[in-house]
Design a protein around this nucleic acid. Structure first.
Lengths: 319, 319
DNA sequence: CCATTTATACTCTCCTTGAGCATAAGATGG
DNA sequence: CCATCTTATGCTCAAGGAGAGTATAAATGG
């Protein structure tokens, strides 16, 4: 059975050579739409080989993205490393480890002459946007198909368990919608064969759910990134990486809502932001607006030094 | 400048071949002491090459650990992927990507005939245990040395910034201790050259802080694991993976305290556990105890199915 | 002037959380 | 049997935070 692990560590077997590449989930928010950088007509996330000319993965990703966009990348965070066998489909291609990263920027910082585009992330996950209430596709298409799938389980117990999982992750049967379960929802749809990426090699010509598919497991990686970001904005002031230098509180709120996929209570949102001293007034007012003009604010970069865990706990609620 | 990324993805360059291995932070808690599995006399974490005979990294790790310990691994979670150049020191060794995992088990499940041991994790991070108040080594050794380091900064502004960072991450100057900043603290000590792993190629024969060092960046990986676990126990019922089938509420509390490195209010702890219906009485009472005998409880595995995010929010306080 | 839209200031209530008090149920030593 | 020690367990209380609503202010286009 087990060999001594340390021996292997000091002298790596030649059999475990792989290729390593980076996959990036680059996020921007423009006019209340969260976007991600894509290539190949929106069917893939930008990715490239990891070059060991860099000191670390983080540096490699930054260098690569900055070369593409011509602008520094604000916030970078490692997401997950995928290494499932047969990722590429062909068993004979060299095995590859994909290290995925989440990066936050702004759309206007894209360089020229690249084939990269910004695509709205809800194009890939239409069921994730609950800002205007529960999306129709969820109630009309997804829920019924999940129900069918649940009923297809071999035993009544399993049927109940399947449906319970569906109801919890998708907020069905009067349960609350939990916006952080992006990955779980994707994986459930995958398991139920309602996603093109899952392959339709099954009899019942699997009817597929709305949402644009992606190459390989890129949509899974995107789901991981969205989930992470939705969790993060609640306890770290990362939203500001996506904002222009000056903004109104409503713009800030709209960005948060765009990411979270749900609306927040306006007054409570302001209270939270202000009492945490995350922003300061610039003195100027927003121009070209409807209604009463709003004060412009800027992010207080100082808070990052002042506090270890500056919370931007969002008051997430319904309507 | 930038080449098209997708081209590379489809035809990986031969230049980015690396070796991939897994590093595991396997945690158990015995008698109020959090332990980690180590090899090489406690100077390294167990690690081994990733074998592509497995479907995924997760499966590979499970198989490998289960072969070692002879018992199933309860909870497994990916931690971080490290790929810094020169990790192994020698620039000519093949570049390696280390994918680290956190796994939870129990000590009594270790198999026989292996060179693995369980070591107390506070042997590596003595300053992280605040259960009996602020550890002496923090006030007596670490704080003064950090102060010296801060003062060594070139400008007064930088000196102040350095010290502010130190004070925040270590809870100095009457700030609160934040038990989750394990990694930040390790990295700060590393930066201040107070850690043997940082190399002492500096003039002022760097006086080193207490705590057992480890090979390569294993102590950094361990710090990552501890930080992640300390964060996780607050919102997910993962502590139970470390408990025997039946336990008293005090035993459960001691385990949580062991991991968090701080004490919790007993009555509030019980209130939280019970109102969340995480446990149920077995009917039996604990035997061989001092004081009034306590009821035995078992974890309600059903909650994992009932709730998506079962919170075990710990009431973490002082004393 | 009015309706409309957005900004901003307060208020109110419920729930959570930190913290303490009080009592119960065992063991042990005199 | 009693005093004391130790742990278990029940209950109360106050402060703060979060969700939600009311009211008023400042702009715009008819």
């Amino acid at each position: 059975m087990a060999r001594s692990p340390q021996k292997k560590t000091n002298a790596p077997a030649s059999g475990n050579a792989v290729t390593a590449d980076l996959v990036a989930v680059l996020v921007a928010v423009t006019d209340g739409t969260p976007k991600i950088m894509t290539i190949a007509s929106g069917s893939a996330l930008p990715s490239g080989p990891f070059e060991f000319t860099h000191r670390s993965l983080q540096t490699a990703l930054r260098a690569w993205v900055e070369a593409q966009t011509g602008h520094p990348l604000g916030y970078v965070e490692q997401l997950y490393t995928f290494a499932d066998r047969g990722r590429s489909g062909d068993a004979r291609t060299p095995h590859s480890v994909s290290i995925s990263y989440l990066g936050l920027t702004r759309e206007d910082q894209v360089g020229e002459g690249f084939e990269a585009h910004w695509s709205g992330w809800y194009d890939y996950f239409p069921w994730e946007d609950h800002r205007a209430g529960t999306p129709v596709c969820l109630a009309k298409m997804i829920a019924p198909k999940l129900k069918t799938w649940a009923k297809a389980a071999p035993s009544p117990t399993l049927q109940r368990e399947r449906w319970q999982r569906c109801a919890i992750t998708f907020g069905l049967d009067d349960r609350d919608w939990n916006e952080e379960l992006v990955l779980q929802r994707y994986e459930l749809l995958y398991e139920a064969l309602l996603i093109p990426e899952a392959g339709r090699a099954h009899d019942h010509a699997a009817p597929v759910v709305p949402g644009k598919p992606m190459t390989a497991d890129h949509r899974r990686i995107l789901a991981t990134g969205i989930a992470r970001l939705r969790a993060k904005i609640k306890y770290r002031p990362v939203v500001f990486e996506l904002m222009p230098a000056e903004f109104t509180l409503l713009q800030l709120q709209r960005s948060v809502e765009a990411l979270a996929g749900r609306l927040v209570h306006k007054q409570n949102f302001r209270r939270l932001i202000e009492q945490q001293e995350l922003v300061e007034e610039t003195g100027a007012m927003a121009a070209d607006t409807v209604g009463r003009p709003a004060k412009l604010f800027r992010f207080r970069h100082a808070v990052l030094a002042e506090r270890a865990v500056a919370g931007t706990k969002l008051p997430l609620s319904r309507s």
